[in-house]
Structures are given as structure tokens and as C-alpha cells.
Design a binder for these strands. Structure first.
Lengths: 343, 343
DNA sequence: AAGATAAGCTAAATCGTTTCAGAAGGCAAT
DNA sequence: ATTGCCTTCTGAAACGATTTAGCTTATCTT
């Protein structure tokens, strides 16, 4: 359709009016500025005929707004973030915004530099999955009242709008469930590092174990060598060196790695160990037996995140930070069948 | 760091020079314009001290370039596209570009409107996964010499730069493999619709079957009701109403759906049917038995796509379209074990 | 000493849009 | 006729960066 780029000036001269008038009409401010009915119609008609498309750069320069929002996830190839991104993109487009995205790999250097890039690119606001050292740049942005929303992970000490899962509750609930199902030697497995959501899940697990007077078994593996560590760990379960009858994997990628290693070490589920993971997905469902998991309300998280951002974008004065905490649901399958049932 | 937004003018007055000079220095064109060493250093120092960040909008308005590229995939939540997006994002950032993305759901209306949005947003170029009716807008853009690269699917009649898989070869190769492994009643299963990559895979399948004088068995299911159709289809294989001893699923989402239904109908793999899918993934590996698949060189596709786009972005004159065709590799697992082996 | 050349810098235009201050014309009231 | 007041519209500035054309000096040439 767009033959050549048509500017407001060309429309103005074609319609025999000033470019100011054209701008006003095209922005729907005809009445507000008291433009005559006849001129209004003429301009609208001509603009349509010439297929006018506003120049975003010029508009942005003038207004200081770009209608772009930045999205920084840990890894777009992780289904959890992909789904989140999908929802945010949808919300954005419904509200006239476009999304610029990038993956940080939970590397704070990359995250910082990408955030900086986004700001330079002139985005109006940012939604980010923070990682351990996001604090620095987040604090800076926050201080400048730059619209910012954090998702999935929290920094309780900072007054930044966030959308979070009630991770402690989730951790507690699945641990309680496993205990009720008759398991006593429940291990909590996570990557090492200090990500708040993992911390919350761990806390829930610990409280549940303590409440029942059971010994905590927490295993944390370095991400770089997780395969080997997990394999060794599972082997020692199989050999009986470690007394563990149930495993809680603290996030989705770790669960997947765990499944690979479980298959490799020929551990039987749930006969040798029961399983609980996070986030679900095809691999969870198609594993034999299907894997129980905590389901996060991803769509809702995306919706809320964009909502919070919009509030800030539209606010004329600085807004107080707002933290939204969502509850998870649970999918109980054969991988965590109760001990009595399976005998 | 950025206390307030600093403009080139403020630097100019702080340094006691004109804003033109500052612009030249900051763009590294000091020598080119014959700026004195002393002035150059002073400006650089002050710019650093004031933490100058160029205003992209202003620069874009002047230059007509945004250093933004648009990426339209079918669905970012599909691992294939997510990985592709990841690579493109990486390439882009290495070359000073930022990516705006969106999902089309293979819906041509959405794709068209999003492409239009991208153009309006002032992206310098677009990488897109086209769907059936992308032709219209692609042709328009092409005609205007707008930088555009299509990935994964082809429209042979259009002169548009593309990165493609040799789908016919892939289809042929896995069919040949299954035939050699002793299967004779090989079914090709795909969604209905006319997507070129599926067509290529089908063609390869057909040629292989013909070459061996075997009867083709092509099944195409409507995406909306695929679960039910596949279930019915698999049931009739199980009951013996359909004589099929091997299944080729034409893409990844369909393969996954197939796996769910295979489990549901309790078909044994490969005793009842052998399996071959596309793209791989955790679910493929963790299924029992692991599923054989065609592995696409996703990283390479992303790299090449960005490369082709860059060429167009940097070219001063219109470039001839270029089509890159990549070869796939294969992962042979228990799901397609040869008949003799498994007896 | 006059003109040429070069080095180092600046004024101003430009990109397309928005918006403010106010102009022009018509009309009514004084 | 003057003033005031609408209604409808326009000129011009502003946003920030880039670039062209050209202005000063100083130096060199003859």
C-alpha cells in the first residue's frame, strides 16, 4: 500500500491548509481546537487517499514517547519465559505498544547492558526478569522514576513494582502433599545461586519439613556441571548411599535435566523416588510416568505485569510501587502417587 | 548513571564549541572533518563526564534509520521459533541492532498487520516466518526495496531473500531410512494447509515411496480438531482397520500431539508403529522410547537470516534476492529401529 | 605584499510532528 | 465606528542530531 512516505506537509498542501491543522485533525483533536467540519473531512479524506502513516521518529522526538516497551527475560527459549513473552506481547499490542525483547541468560552484566540499550533506544518502560545483581540498574531506573516492572523474582528491599508467585506457599504445599502421601526422605534440588523465587520455594519446603519434624535434605548444584552432579546424586540414591524417596526439582530446566538423568540411572518413578517439578510442559506429560508439577499462572502474570507497567506509563506523577502475588495450582500425577496406593 | 538527559548542545556549551563539532567528534569523524586534537579530547572528556547518551529518535529522524529490526515468528512459544529468535537476537545485538518481535499464529491477517506496524515503527528491515498469504505484503515491501528476509518457508515465485531447509531432501531421507529399516506401510501425517515447508517434506516422502513402488499414505488433519482426528486415526491403526507400520509427523507440534495420542491409545513404539518427527526437543528424548527426528540447523538458520538482512541493510543499491538452502541432520533412535533388529 | 591553500571551526538547514500564541475575518453590542 | 468576542485557522518554535556550505585565521607561495 505505502507507495512513498507521505508527510503531513504534503497532505497540508494537497488540502490547502496548514500542516498544523492536519496534525490536529489526524490526532482527533479537531473539535478540541475548533476546526471546521468541512476542513476536517477534507483532510481525513486526503490522508486516507494518500495512505498517510505517521513518522514514529518525528513523533517520538517531539513527544518524548516511543510507544515501545522493553522486555528482558532470562531465556526466550525457556517455555516459561516464551509464554510470558507471548502474553506481554499480546497485551502490549492491544494497548498500542510494541515490544523489544532480549535474553539475559541470568547474567547480570548482560542484563544491565541490555537494559541500558533499551533505555537508549527510548523505550517508555521495561518489564524484566531480574537476576542476582539487577539491583544496581533497577535502583537507578527507579530513582529516575523510569517505569519498571519486575516479574518472577523479588527484591524485597526495593520499592519496585513486581509480579510474583507465592513461591513459599508453592514449596510448602507440594512438600506437605508428599509428606501426606507417605514420603519421609524428601530432597529439595536446586541450582546454586541466590534467586529469590528459588529461595521462596526452598523456604516453603523447609517449613513443611520442620512442621513434621523431618530432616531437611537440600541439594544445590552448579549450573555448569549440573548433569554430572545430578547423575552422581541419583546414582547414590539408587545404590542406597543416599536415603531419598522423593525429589522436588526447584524449576523447570532443572526438572528436565533430572528426568534425563533419572532415565539414565534407571531409577523407577515413583517406586524408587517420587517426583515433583515446576512449570509442566510436554516433556513432563510425556515422561513415563507423567510428572507432577506446580503450575504457574503465566498468562495472569503477563497480564498483571503489563497492567502495572501501563499504570506507570500513564501516571503523571510518580506512583508507589505495587507488588502482586499470585497463587499457583498443582497437577498431581503418577510420579507422586501415595505410597499406600502404589503397593 | 544517567542523572538527566544530556543533549549535544549542553556538551557544546560546556566545552565552549558548537554542537556541530560535538556531533562530529562523538561520531568518531573528528579526523575526517579536521577537528583539532585538543578540542576532540575536551569534548570526549566532557561527554563522558556528563554521561551523554544519544537520543535515538532525533538521530533516527535525521538519518531515516532506527537500528531496529522486526522479527515475526509463527509462535514464540514454539521451541523452534524461540531458538531461532534467540539466535537472531544475538546476531542483531552483535551488530548494533535491536529486535522487535511478534507472533503471527500463522494467521495472515495478524501477520500483515504486524508487518505494517513494524514498518510504521520505523524498523530498518524485517525477518519473517511467512504463512500462506504473506505474499501480498511481502510483495509490496519487496517492490519498495524494503529489506526483508523470509525464513523456514518459501514462495518460489517471489524474488525474496530466504533461508530454507532442504525439506524435500529431509522428507526423502527419513522415508528412505524407514523403508530400508523394513517398513512398508509408512504414513505421512501433517496439518492441512498449504505451507511450503510441509509441502517439501511431503514431496520427499512421495518420491521415496514411489521410487520403491510403495503406496503413499498421506493424512492431513485440521489444526483445530487435530487431537480428535489423530486419536481416531491411531485407534484405527491399533484395531487394524488402517494398515500402517510407521508414522512420519511433519512438524514438531504435530509430533507432540501425536505422542500424547500414542500414549493414550496405548500403541507400542516401534512394535506397532515406528515414529519419525521433526525438530526434536526434551519431549522427544524423554518419551519412551525416544523419538527419531530431523534436526534443523536452527542456529545456522538464524545466523544466515540476519546475514542476508544485513546485506540488504548495508547495500546502497537494490540487491538481487538470495536463497540459502540448508541441509538437515538426523537423529535415529529406538522409535525407528529396523524391523529385523527388534525381532 | 597579494593571493592561494589549508586547518579548524560554526551557522543554519533539515528530518516530521506537535502545540502555543496569535492572526484574520465575521458579527454583535455599545 | 469602535470595541469585544467568537470561530477558524496559521506561523513558527521546539524536539536533538547530522551535515553542508562557508567563515575565520594562519601559513605558505611567488
Amino acid at each position: 500500500m505505502p507507495k512513498k512516505k507521505v508527510s503531513i506537509k504534503e497532505i497540508a498542501s494537497a488540502a490547502g491548509v496548514s500542516s498544523a491543522l492536519v496534525s490536529m485533525v489526524l490526532n482527533g483533536k479537531a473539535k478540541q481546537y475548533g476546526i471546521g467540519e468541512e476542513a476536517t473531512q477534507r483532510v481525513l479524506r486526503i490522508a486516507r487517499e494518500m495512505n498517510y502513516q505517521p513518522n514514529i521518529m518525528a513523533r517520538g522526538l517531539r513527544s518524548g514517547k516511543s510507544h515501545l516497551v522493553g522486555l528482558v527475560v532470562a531465556d526466550i527459549a525457556n517455555p516459561f519465559f516464551a509464554k510470558l513473552a507471548r502474553e506481554i506481547e499480546k497485551q502490549a499490542s492491544e494497548h498500542g505498544y510494541t515490544v523489544i525483547y532480549g535474553s539475559s541468560d541470568d547474567n547480570s552484566r548482560r542484563l544491565n547492558s541490555f537494559m541500558q540499550t533499551l533505555v537508549n533506544q527510548g523505550v517508555d518502560g521495561i518489564i524484566a526478569i531480574p537476576c542476582e545483581d539487577t539491583i544496581k540498574i533497577a535502583a537507578e531506573l527507579q530513582e529516575q522514576k523510569f517505569p519498571l516492572v519486575l516479574v518472577d523474582r523479588d527484591y524485597t528491599d526495593m520499592e519496585i513494582s513486581s509480579v510474583l508467585l507465592d513461591n513459599e506457599q508453592a514449596g510448602r504445599q507440594i512438600t506437605d502433599y508428599l509428606i501426606t502421601a507417605g514420603y519421609r526422605h524428601i530432597a529439595f534440588v536446586a541450582y546454586s545461586g541466590d534467586l529469590s523465587h528459588i529461595h521462596g520455594r526452598l523456604l516453603g519446603y523447609q517449613k513443611a519439613m520442620q512442621a513434621h519434624g523431618l530432616a531437611e535434605k537440600v541439594y544445590r548444584f552448579n549450573k555448569d556441571e549440573s548433569r554430572e552432579s545430578i547423575r552422581a546424586f541419583l546414582s547414590s540414591i539408587r545404590s542406597g548411599d543416599e536415603t531419598v524417596d522423593a525429589l522436588i526439582f526447584a524449576n523447570n530446566t532443572l526438572t528436565i535435566e533430572g528426568l534425563y538423568m533419572i532415565r539414565e540411572t534407571c531409577l523407577r518413578v515413583p517406586e524408587d523416588v517420587a517426583l515433583f517439578g515446576f512449570d509442566g510442559g510436554n516433556a513432563f506429560d510425556l515422561f513415563t510416568p507423567p510428572v507432577s508439577y506446580v503450575r504457574q499462572p503465566i498468562t495472569e502474570m503477563g497480564r498483571q505485569a503489563f497492567q502495572l507497567l501501563m499504570k506507570q506509563l500513564e501516571a503523571t506523577e510518580p506512583l508507589p510501587a505495587e507488588k502482586v502475588v499470585l497463587q499457583s495450582s498443582f497437577v498431581y500425577t503418577a510420579s507422586s502417587k501415595s505410597r499406600s496406593e502404589r503397593k
